[in-house]
Simulated assay, not measured.
Amino acid sequence: MTRAIDDILARHATDTYSVVDELHAVPPYRVHAVRVDGRRAVLKPDAHPRGEAAVDGRG
């Protein structure tokens, strides 16, 4: 797990977190299946300067 992913998960978890699998790793994004406080989730952090995961798919 990279430091950036660990930091993101630590900010949102109140108990435990883990990366289950990497689903996609093509810039500008990386997509991970994660578990946060016992619940499944998907994490999509920017992996390239042109990435804007927060607004991806809107339009």
Rank of each mutant, 00 (worst) to 15 (best):
Thr2Gly: 15
Arg3Gln: 10
Asp7Tyr: 00
Asp7Leu: 06
Asp7Thr: 01
Ile8Ala: 12
Ile8Phe: 10
Ile8Asn: 09
Ile8Gly: 05
Ile8Trp: 07
Leu9Ser: 00
Ala10Arg: 07
Ala10Asp: 15
Ala10Tyr: 03
Arg11Ile: 14
Arg11Ala: 15
His12Pro: 06
Ala13Gln: 07
Ala13Pro: 01
Ala13Phe: 02
Ala13Lys: 06
Ala13Trp: 01
Ala13Met: 11
Ala13Gly: 01
Ala13Glu: 05
Thr14Pro: 05
Thr14Ile: 10
Asp15Tyr: 12
Asp15Asn: 13
Asp15Lys: 14
Thr16Ala: 13
Thr16Phe: 14
Thr16Lys: 04
Tyr17Gln: 01
Ser18Lys: 15
Ser18Cys: 12
Val19Glu: 05
Val19Ile: 15
Val19Thr: 10
Val20Cys: 10
Val20Asn: 11
Asp21Leu: 05
Asp21His: 13
Asp21Val: 12
Asp21Glu: 15
Asp21Tyr: 07
Glu22Phe: 08
Leu23Met: 12
Leu23His: 01
Leu23Ser: 03
His24Pro: 02
His24Leu: 13
His24Phe: 14
Ala25Gly: 13
Ala25Phe: 05
Ala25Tyr: 06
Ala25Asp: 15
Val26Tyr: 09
Pro28Ile: 01
Pro28Gln: 08
Tyr29Lys: 08
Tyr29Asp: 02
Arg30His: 04
Val31Gln: 04
Val31Tyr: 00
Val31Ser: 01
His32Ala: 05
His32Gln: 05
His32Pro: 00
His32Lys: 02
Ala33Val: 03
Ala33Gln: 14
Ala33Glu: 12
Ala33Arg: 13
Val34Pro: 02
Val34Leu: 01
Val36Gly: 04
Val36Tyr: 02
Gly38Trp: 10
Arg39Cys: 06
Arg40Ile: 14
Arg40Phe: 05
Ala41Met: 04
Ala41Pro: 04
Val42Ala: 07
Leu43Arg: 04
Leu43Ile: 03
Lys44Trp: 10
Lys44Asn: 02
Lys44Glu: 00
Pro45Ser: 06
Pro45Lys: 02
Asp46His: 05
Ala47Glu: 03
Ala47Asp: 09
Ala47Val: 02
His48Pro: 00
His48Leu: 08
His48Arg: 00
His48Thr: 08
His48Ala: 07
His48Trp: 04
His48Ile: 06
Arg50Glu: 15
Arg50Met: 04
Gly51Arg: 07
Glu52His: 08
Glu52Met: 12
Ala54Arg: 13
Ala54Phe: 09
Ala54His: 12
Ala54Ile: 04
Ala54Trp: 11
Val55Cys: 13
Val55Ser: 12
Asp56Trp: 14
Asp56Ala: 13
Asp56Glu: 13
Gly57Leu: 06
Gly57Asn: 11
Gly59Gln: 15
Gly59Asp: 14
